[in-house]
């Protein structure tokens, strides 16, 4: 900090004055995190690729199969080759990417809703509510989530018919996957929110609101929730990456999203059988998964540093 006696505003360094708004400071902290910026750029590029790619190939192209052209190596007509029944892998990566990302974002929305609700109730009301909800959370954490996902995917599979959405047909399994990933990933969020609420509940402004006769609802919505936002945003961002991975795992094992709807995960299903002859079956979708997950993780790290500078960086 400048200690000179000249009549200048107090400056942290030459560019950043303390007068900047909170949002601006957060943005600056994020931009200083080089890797996060690279991650964000890569992520935007991937999103553009899977959305603008739809201009080159229609969804019908992605699902069109012709066994006469099956397992072709990458060539001029099919830049990334064709799969076992002759579908264009590039087109499927584009449409699969849309679904994978959609699943990532919506599943996290479900898990944020569930996790925040449970965390807030548990932290705010305490007592019996708290111990019941936390025992439940503990029980959920004691079952490895991949196994739980597999069991639940089996449980719900085939129960939901195909859906029309935005003029496109989705296999019902997409909704199943979104719901079950959401329902098996809220536990850490609930714990984060609960501990944040526990400390906020004891602050003066909450006590003041209580003294003024504010209802529980108002205290929770207006005073407590906004202050838990920072850790929730960070956890949700990282959650998108792990939701995309979860989808890939269960689809790879064959109980996830069912064809013809493509996802990055189910593109890889069965590729092991062609490991000798057709490496393009798994290299390209695999690369997309790794790039996406990695860039989301980088962005999440950057957000953590930017939103919550005091927090310890978990590996």
């Amino acid at each position: 900090m400048a200690t000179s006696s000249q009549a200048k505003p107090i400056t942290l360094n030459d560019q950043t004055t303390v007068n900047y708004s909170r949002a601006r400071r957060t943005l600056n902290r994020f931009l200083r995190h080089r890797v996060a910026v690279v991650g964000l750029v890569v992520l935007i590029a991937i999103v553009l690729f899977v959305t603008l790619g739809a201009l080159w190939y229609s969804e019908a192209d992605a699902n069109y199969n012709d066994t006469k052209r099956s397992l072709l190596a990458p060539n001029a007509e099919f830049p990334l080759g064709t799969d076992t029944i002759g579908r264009n892998i590039l087109a499927r990566i584009i449409y699969g990417g849309q679904i994978s990302m959609l699943i990532g974002v919506t599943a996290v929305t479900v898990s944020v809703l569930v996790g925040t609700t449970i965390g807030v109730f548990s932290g705010y009301f305490g007592g019996v509510v708290d111990s019941l909800l936390m025992r439940f959370t503990e029980a959920m954490l004691s079952i490895p989530s991949l196994l739980l996902l597999l069991v639940m995917a089996k449980f719900f599979s085939g129960r939901i018919p195909q859906q029309e959405f935005l003029g496109r047909t989705f296999s019902g399994s997409v909704i199943v996957i979104v719901v079950i990933i959401g329902l098996t990933s809220w536990m850490y969020l609930a714990r984060i929110v609960r501990s944040a609420v526990l400390s906020i509940r004891e602050t003066e402004y909450v006590m003041a609101a209580q003294a003024l006769g504010a209802t529980h609802r108002r205290i929770i919505l207006a005073h407590i929730l906004p202050n838990t936002l920072a850790p929730v945003i960070v956890a949700a961002t990282l959650g998108v990456a792990s939701a995309i991975l979860s989808e890939a795992y269960i689809s790879f094992l064959g109980v996830g999203v069912q064809p013809p709807t493509a996802t990055w995960g189910n593109l890889l299903e069965g590729s092991r059988r062609y490991i000798d002859d057709a490496p393009w079956l798994w290299i390209f979708p695999g690369l997309m998964i790794v790039l996406t997950v990695m860039s989301i993780n980088f962005v999440g790290d950057g957000l953590r540093d930017a939103l919550d500078p005091r927090s310890d960086k978990k590996i």
Binding site: A241, L245, A248, Y249, F252, L268, S271, R272, I275, W282, G286, I289, V290, V293, M294, N297
Partner: peptide
Amino acid sequence: VAYSIPVFLMGLMLM
């Protein structure tokens, strides 16, 4: 990098 690689992809790559 390794942190973002799903187990099945690691398996396929090594294979």
